[in-house]
């Protein structure tokens, strides 16, 4: 699971859960997969992402210092930040770990890079 995907996942489908975002992420094993940097792509992607989710991902991945607390207004001109975001969001691949619902504590395991978000019938 790339951390860009993580930014979209929620546990809101669970009965009673109000927001279910961001999920608590734990990384047990990760890979870094180099990929081509496309500043336009990252810049256009940003408005679709949730900044608190990006911050949390950076924290768990140990890249806290790379990502500012708030999205700077002039990010398009800040190639250095775009590069860091590119690395965080597209190059880190979580292979083993888990996601946890912030409200119910329900755990979704990540195995071989695939989060299992399937819920049981009695949970929805």
């Amino acid at each position: 699971m790339r951390l860009s995907t993580y930014n979209f996942l929620t546990s809101k489908a669970i009965k009673g859960v109000k927001v279910g975002f961001p999920l608590k992420l734990t990384i047990a094993k990760q890979d870094v997969v180099e990929s081509e940097f496309n500043p336009t792509f990252i810049e256009r992607l940003l408005p679709r992402l949730d900044w608190s989710g990006i911050r949390l991902a950076a924290e768990v991945a140990g890249l806290n210092d790379d990502i500012p607390a708030e999205l700077p207004a002039n990010v398009a001109e800040n190639e250095e930040l775009l590069k860091k975001l590119h690395h965080l969001l597209l190059e880190i691949d979580v292979l083993e770990g888990q996601l946890e619902c912030p409200e119910t504590g329900r755990v979704f395991p990540i195995t071989d890079g695939i989060p299992n978000m399937l819920l049981n019938e009695d949970e929805v």
Binding site: M1, R2, S4, T5, F8, L9, T10, S11, K12, A13, F21, V33, E34, S35, E36, R48, D50, D93, G113, I114, P115, N116, M117, L118, L119, V124
Partner: peptide, 24 residues
């Protein structure tokens, strides 16, 4: 080169664990 590993997760199409109004 495996630079483009797919992003995928497991779920049911009746309960997609993705934020509302989030995709184009």
């Amino acid at each position: 080169t495996s630079t483009n590993l797919p992003n995928a997760f497991r779920c049911d199409c009746l309960h997609v664990p993705v934020r509302s109004q989030a995709v184009d």
